[in-house]
Design a protein around this nucleic acid. Structure first.
Lengths: 270, 270
DNA sequence: ACAAAAGTGTTCTAGGTACACCCATGA
DNA sequence: TCATGGGTGTACCTAGAACACTTTTGT
């Protein structure tokens, strides 16, 4: 028996490797995949995400985040990317770990009970324990058109989601919250656009994510001050007003997140 | 066979439950436990953390983060709290998920190779794959004295760590980075102190975490503006200067983090 | 000419920093 | 009375918000 499971005073495990068999908890990786496009008959873009219909119990027939059990040969991030590829066949602009969800019983009811301090429902014997490591990804607008179509995959606007399997509604809510924070102090907004874009397009990304309009004048200055974009010298013509400049990212920096070590390079860079 | 493992166009798994057996990846939970106390012969406090000596291969004899395999009956957070209790017998002031580390081979060498783009070393057949969900916790100063003593547990100042097992040095580095960020926009600093404290003590917490001195005058005003503390009316006497006031937290709010849903309540509160 | 969005200038305010200075206590 | 940290006042600077205004295009 492992020292980890002894309740004696000397019992402290230095983690990892062969301490105990833990086949009863399985590990899945899911991805919240976000892209911007306008709804039918609307001008401004909204966040959309692809969901997958469950083909088996529990929650059979309901929509869920794309994902699956972790392939032992892939890192968590590679697994998330692979999920993304399978579900959409698109190239992400950014990919980052969101959170590891690991409550014993992961249903909306269980969480509600927990929040108000009631006793949690006991998992049934048919309920296998699953810990999900969830990633979120952005898809550049230029990619969106290439989405694969499939009967059991459908894109939904984030403000018109159905009731999803497990705790997936809550996970998406949290992903959107994280995105809102992140857009304010990093450069992820760019990852929703193509190589070149106008300031108005970039502003629309911010507006869609933050859910409010921004002053174009101030927005321009803030972005300029951040030095995150470069004027290509070219303009978009054919608009019925003054032609806007085209910009591109200043930074050849990779948007795929290299994990924590990458994450804290990020804020010191600019 | 599960649809998740088919490479066909229609193959998209809606995650979770019985899709595949994945006994070959095991799941561990570790905790970076942080407390403040002065080093020998120093006045100002430094961050310390407890490490556990490994009793088996790999890395036998080296120090490592306290942790162990996930008990299927516990949530991730409960598992982290349980680890903390086993390693220190102390009550944490705050507990929060840090990150899920899930590279295929988690050694410093592998990460270094990855960063410079070299091919990664191939895991040996004796190397079982482990995904670690890591939490970090703070211990109030009033608790620190009650630490359990044990031959295979030792507290180290964070700036004098030995070479640790696995990628644990990197994990701790990241924990400290996260702490630095967090201290600036939330109230965790309080969680390193007892119920009542002086402004100078609170400032010392900030200074130890941020690694720089702060202007006492401005610090006072900033904390006052945040309304996060309340004057108890009492003072500390016996100092050889003007007696400082005693304060306590304004907020009866729980410091144990309730996960993502709790996390985003946090920033809108103040 | 006019509509519409691109782009510039100006003012105001809140928050942070720097630092001079006064206050209350023990020795 | 002096040393020491507690605590206040104030001037400065910068980033952001608000908004008036000018520019450049297509129709």
């Amino acid at each position: 028996m492992s020292i980890a499971s002894q309740p004696l005073p000397g019992a402290v495990a230095a983690e990892e490797h062969n301490d105990v068999d833990h086949t009863s908890v399985s590990l899945a990786v899911s991805t919240v995949i976000l892209a911007l496009r306008p709804k039918e008959n609307e001008i401004h873009p909204t966040l959309w995400l692809p969901l997958v219909r469950r083909l088996r119990e529990p929650y059979k027939g309901q929509w869920a985040l794309p994902g699956g059990p972790l392939n032992p040969n892939l890192s968590l991030e590679e697994a998330a990317a692979s999920t993304l590829k399978r579900a959409t066949n698109l190239q992400p602009g950014y990919l980052e770990q969101l959170y590891a969800f690991g409550d014993v019983l992961r249903t909306p009811e269980a969480r509600a009970a927990r929040v108000v301090g009631e006793p949690e429902p006991v998992p049934g014997t048919d309920h296998e324990r699953v810990v999900s490591v969830v990633y979120w990804a952005s898809i550049p607008a230029t990619e969106v058109a290439n989405t694969r179509v499939h009967e059991n995959i459908r894109w939904f606007p984030v403000d018109e989601l159905p009731e999803l399997a497990f705790d997936h509604n809550e996970i998406i809510e949290y992903a959107l919250y994280r995105l809102q924070n992140k857009v304010e102090y990093s450069r992820i907004a760019h990852s929703f656009l193509g190589e070149e874009f106008t300031l108005a397009q970039l502003r629309e990304v911010y507006e869609a994510i933050l859910g409010r309009t921004l002053d174009p004048a101030n927005f321009r200055r803030q972005i300029a001050a951040s030095k995150s974009i470069i004027d290509t010298g070219r303009r978009v013509e054919g608009t019925r007003h003054r032609p806007p400049r085209l910009y591109r990212y200043n930074d050849a920096q990779a948007y795929a997140d290299a994990g924590p070590l990458g994450m804290y390079r990020e804020r010191h860079e600019a």
